[in-house]
Design a protein around this nucleic acid. Structure first.
Length: 791
RNA sequence: GGGGGAUUAGCUCAGCUGGCUAGAGCAUUAGCUUUGCAAGCUAAGGGUCAUCGGUUCGACUCCGAUAUCCUCCA
């Protein structure tokens, strides 16, 4: 994990400047020794039909001696984003940090890209100049770009002349704190040293990513944080023997280190600490349950006399219980056990293949219909339909389903962004009507998703947005702004947006706040929002104003969100709500009608979620609730206090339930006592009792009678018949002595008896039941039982 | 988005291949013990076994759907 420094150029400058400036920065500004610098350039690849990067080679030749310019293969010196898309050669800058004595013995050029710990790559300049098509061929890009990436830690190490990244002052304060907390001294033992470094390194990634607005989760970027955090906890757990949350204790050091450069850390310190603590704690719980599972696996091995944990079990531990595989290895080794690594790898591969199969998308090349400078211009703020022209389209296939992506010259369709979902609607090409299922942005291009293409893609296109859906979405978006402002007013300015969803049905707003929002606060917030709705505040929309100006107005921007130089500002009362926003809004707040908060929940440590509905949806809900309450009142004969009335009802119901249970028990006891007197002692000493019970009985009552009789009468052979729910029911209960001494088995016996009632049954040797559809046969069944035991 | 797993008393969890009248520890309450406390002993209360449906003579256990949570992969 390292911090990458760099900057992009989109057509502003290319190889000449990038290389020149790289050299200047390292040698003139940072005073690195040019004798120790090496550059690599792409050697070319005949198979791919890409030539050597001669241009970069020439440029470097003006700066470095030939012996310091090396060529590299496709793996090291060619960058690709994926199977298709932009790509190009790159040039790396390496730095030789060995001592002069060592440098005399071995030529540094032979150590570049050889994983030598002291000859390290510090900078990579990628020159994006090709576009790879689906058929594998390359075409030159009209505009060429530069993407530079420099490792901060390695650069600092080169400047400070340290032999390891971890000896630079980026890490030493954190490692010192780990030493203080764990009481383990750094530099004494390779194993604990590695653990200290892992902690120091990972905590930086975690803190910065959370400050950037990411939270640990089970998907996407959030999952990456979760994994990094867990790796750190695992190292502390198994090597530093620290079994409690530790990472959150390191936050203050980082905050101090970066206070000047990143005030965001200071501002969010409490929040970041809480999130980390929560995540650590929950992972430690996961580890605990994993250890339990491990114990079970261990027991099974012991009883079967094996010492090899099969791959499936190891994988289950990892996959289902989240127990890290290297921890399994470690613990297994401690207990003298081994893991079937092949089996584990295989199970892992199967899972990966499954996921890949499910996510596989086949993307075709764009087909250009008409060249247009306007491609994808959004006109949807002002109109919901327009006549335009298709610019290009392509076909994509996922899980056997084919869809099309269409780009128009101008479009009224809003593409999913800023939490607001994409528009739906129709595209009319002459008489052909194509449904737009969704609209998304791709590389700043508005892309319409459809299931079909028109027969003629060149005819003019009449693009029409679904007005009702857009209208409802718009209400929800404006309500979101009003809500955001209300939250900050009522709860405090620590409230920061952490996520937002705006669709036609409802709005969802996630924000940082430490406690549950109380019912009173929620009510106050809702009132505030509705107050602003009734004030019918007019929208002030400013398109394309410089970001500086917007910020001076006090507009709320999201940290971690990228904004262009020019932004759109949405204002509802300059003293109330000013936000940078690309979404669609009502022209006056009164149109929202009503906003009703429907839920307040927690979604992560320190993050709350509010859901709300507006407009007719809100009215419908209120009306329904009203009807329902009226109905309830009516049912209870209009009590003064509805809640109390229901509570009484519930209590009464519970009391009656218990009373019935009690009566059933009593009835059963009585029935049992009556039955006792009807038992006959047979010549062979068996106390036989066979009865056809009548009356209103439940299966549970019969069961209780049988068990009670067994406890009270020795040598009992009990057979009971009953009719329950119009079905015949037989119960057989045998004293333990009979089962043991007379080899009787209730389970097998009842199957014979069940024939009389045309049914089947079974059970244990001393107790069995049977059911059938012929109640008239019960007497015969009891009679047969008597014969069996008399026999 | 695709797998796997979990959901049983207030809490932490047992309950194997359907049938031992749903259990343990902690917590609660009462009694005993103790000068008092900590603790100990004895007993009691507390469960729609997540929800809904199905299979079966019989479902905590098997099957399906739903909900919530955990976890892995992308």
């Amino acid at each position: 994990m390292f911090e990458m420094l760099g900057n992009w150029s989109f057509g502003n400058y290319f190889k000449q400047e990038a290389i020149q400036w790289s050299y200047e920065f390292l040698v003139t500004t940072l005073h690195l020794n040019p004798d120790r610098l090496y550059a690599t350039v792409f050697e070319g690849d005949a198979k791919e039909n890409v030539p050597k990067d001669e241009e970069s080679f020439q440029l470097w030749s003006a700066l470095l001696p030939a012996s310091h310019i090396l060529t590299g293969n496709k793996k090291d010196n060619f960058w690709e984003m994926g199977d298709t898309g932009p790509c190009g050669p790159c040039t790396e800058i390496h730095y030789d940090m060995r001592t002069d004595a060592e440098r005399l013995i071995t030529n540094g050029a032979t150590l570049v890209n050889k994983d030598h710990p002291q000859v390290i790559e510090i900078w990579n300049n990628v020159f994006i100049q090709f576009n790879r098509l689906a058929n594998g061929s390359l075409e030159p890009l009209p505009a060429k770009h530069v993407d530079t990436g420099m490792g901060l830690e390695r650069l600092v190490r080169a400047i400070q002349g340290k032999s390891s990244n971890y000896d630079t002052d980026l890490f030493t304060p954190i490692i010192a704190e780990v030493e203080r907390l764990t009481g383990i001294e750094y530099g004494k033992d390779e194993k604990t040293d590695i653990a200290c470094r892992v902690l120091a390194d990972h905590i930086r990634s975690i803190v910065f990513t959370i400050a950037d607005g990411q939270l640990p989760s089970n998907t996407g970027a959030g999952y990456v944080i979760r994994r990094i955090l867990r790796r750190a906890v695992r190292y502390a757990y198994s090597y530093l023997h620290y079994k409690e949350p530790i990472l959150h204790n390191l936050v203050p050091i980082l905050v101090m280190q970066f206070d000047e450069l990143y005030p965001e850390l200071t501002e969010q310190q409490a929040f970041i600490t809480k999130v980390i603590w929560q995540e650590e704690s929950s992972f430690l719980r996961t580890l605990e349950s994993g250890l339990r599972k491990f114990g079970q696996i261990e027991d099974q091995l012991k009883t079967s006399g094996k010492t090899d944990i099969d791959g499936q079990s190891a994988f289950e531990l990892y996959d289902t219980f989240g127990f890290p595989i290297d921890l399994t290895r470690l613990i297994a080794a401690e207990k003298g056990l081994t893991i079937n690594e092949t089996g584990f790898a295989q199970a892992m591969q199967e899972q990966k293949d499954r996921a890949r199969q499910a996510a596989k998308i086949d993307t075709g090349d764009w087909v250009t219909v008409s060249a247009s400078a306007l491609a994808g211009e959004f006109v949807g703020y002002d109109t919901l339909q327009t006549v335009t022209q298709m610019v290009k389209y392509r076909q994509i296939t996922q899980k056997g389903k084919t869809q099309y992506q269409i780009v128009l010259e101008t479009t009224p369709f809003y593409a999913e962004s800023g939490g607001q979902v994409g528009d739906k609607g129709f595209l009319y090409f002459g008489d052909d009507k194509i449904e737009v299922l969704d609209t998304k942005k791709e590389n700043n291009l508005i892309v319409h998703f459809t299931n079909a293409l028109p027969p003629d893609v060149t005819v003019p296109c009449h693009a029409v947005v679904n007005e009702l859906l857009r209208h409802n979405t718009t209400l929800n978006h404006t309500a979101t702004h009003l809500l955001h402002a209300a939250l900050r007013q009522k709860l405090g300015t620590h409230v920061v947006q952490k996520g937002s969803l705006v669709n036609p049905d409802y709005l969802r707003f996630d924000f940082s706040h430490f406690a549950k929002v109380t019912d009173e606060e929620l009510r106050a917030i809702e009132e505030q929002v509705n107050d602003k709705i009734r004030q019918n505040i007019r929208l002030q929309e400013m398109r394309n104003i410089p970001i500086k100006e917007a910020m001076n107005m006090g507009a709320m921007a999201l940290f971690g969100e990228k904004y262009g130089d020019y932004v759109r500002v949405i204002v509802f009362d300059p003293d109330y709500s000013i936000e940078l926003c690309g979404g669609t809004h009502v022209d006056a707040t009164g149109k929202i009608g009503l906003c009703k908060i429907t839920a307040e929940t927690s979604i992560a440590a320190g993050v709350r979620r509010i859901e709300a509905i507006t407009g007719s949806a809100a009215y419908q809900m209120v009306a329904q609730e009203w009807d329902q309450t009226r109905h309830l009142r009516h049912l209870l004969n209009n009590p003064k206090d509805l809640a109390a009335g229901i509570q009484n009802l519930l209590a009464e119901n519970e009391r009656l339930r218990k009373e019935i249970e009690h009566l059933h028990t009593e009835q059963a006891v009585q029935l049992k006592n009556n039955l006792k007197t009807k038992a006959v002692t047979l010549p062979n000493g068996i106390n036989f009792l066979g009865e056809h019970l009548t009356g209103n009985l439940t299966a549970d009552m019969v069961k209780k009678i049988a068990y009670d009789l067994k406890n009270e009468m020795p040598n009992l052979f009990l057979v009971l018949g009953a009719t329950i729910d119009d079905k015949a029911h037989l119960t057989l209960m045998l004293a333990d002595e009979l089962v043991q001494n007379h080899q009787l088995n209730a389970g097998t016996l009842i199957r014979t008896l069940a024939k009389h009632i045309q049914g089947g049954g079974g059970g244990q040797p001393f107790y069995a039941t049977a059911g059938g559809k012929h109640p008239q046969g019960i007497a015969a069944a009891i009679e047969e039982a008597r014969l069996v035991v008399s026999g």
